[in-house]
């Protein structure tokens, strides 16, 4: 059995990281307030406590979150990302600690430059910490069902009469192309007229190439309607 997980993109990771940064800053703010309360009692100890807690929060926040939330920090949870072992095995605590300790190197020389560049150059989108710990950050998928009635309308689908060709089409169209076709229909109103013609002409030509339906079933169909009919075959008429 083969399975693949969708890697998290650099933008979503950046957003999750900024969210975590905000959380850390908020915690540090609270530490600062607590320190201000105790500074009158013992300035030296309260200063020491502040230094230690700042450091502990900076280092331990991500480690504890990922340990307790199974590979997620609060930012990752919001943006539906998760740290997993790169080979599909169970994520070990030591991997979580190593990847987070290496943030110190990823952050060099400033603004996560090393980590960011490594992430962009790496085929698995790994920053240095991920490489050292053999982890990747993936997107957590959810089942999403598009509103097909709204997208496809209720026109007669002449292609459906040829059930064996429909079955062949379902076998030959890749999930990625099917998703592109559905996306094109969903966004058709946002496309400029010329761009819309180009997109549907391309998709239609691709589908026509994959399976040849009898001319009687296709001759009156424009490119967009052809794509609409194909999407209906793929998504609804199984």
């Amino acid at each position: 059995m083969e399975f693949a997980l969708p890697l998290a993109g650099p933008l979503s990771r950046l957003m999750a990281m900024l969210t975590d940064l905000l959380v850390i800053m908020a915690i540090k703010q609270v530490i600062g307030i607590v320190k201000d309360v105790f500074v009158a009692v013992n300035p030296d100890s309260s200063q020491a406590l502040e230094i230690l807690l700042y450091f502990a929060v900076s280092i331990l926040y991500a480690i504890l979150c990922e340990l307790l939330l199974d590979g997620q920090t609060l930012g990752k949870r919001i943006f539906k990302l998760r740290v997993v072992d790169a080979t599909g095995l169970r994520l070990e605590p030591s991997q979580i600690i190593v990847r987070n300790l290496l943030r110190l190197i990823d952050g060099l020389p400033m603004f996560y430059l090393f980590g960011g560049i490594t992430c962009l150059l790496n085929t698995k989108m790994q920053r240095l910490g991920d490489i050292a710990a053999n982890t990747v950050v993936v997107r957590v998928p959810e089942i999403a069902h598009p509103d097909l009635d709204k997208i496809l309308g209720s026109k007669y689908n002449s292609l459906l009469e040829h059930r064996h060709l429909c079955a062949r089409l379902r076998q030959r169209v890749t999930p990625e192309v099917a998703a592109i076709a559905l996306e094109a229909l969903t966004r058709r109103d946002r496309l400029e007229a010329r761009a819309r013609l180009t997109v549907f002409a391309g998709l239609s030509a691709h589908f026509r190439e994959l399976v040849e339906f009898p001319p009687a079933a296709t001759e009156s169909l424009g490119d967009e309607q052809y794509v609409r009919n194909v999407v209906e075959i793929l998504y609804r008429a199984a």
Binding site: M1, F3, A4, P6, V140, E142, Q171, T174, P175, A179
Partner: peptide
Amino acid sequence: STFASEPELKRYLEWLVS
């Protein structure tokens, strides 16, 4: 996996299985 229409479903199942 051989079915074109449900890339999201396929991803969800891959996620569960992994």
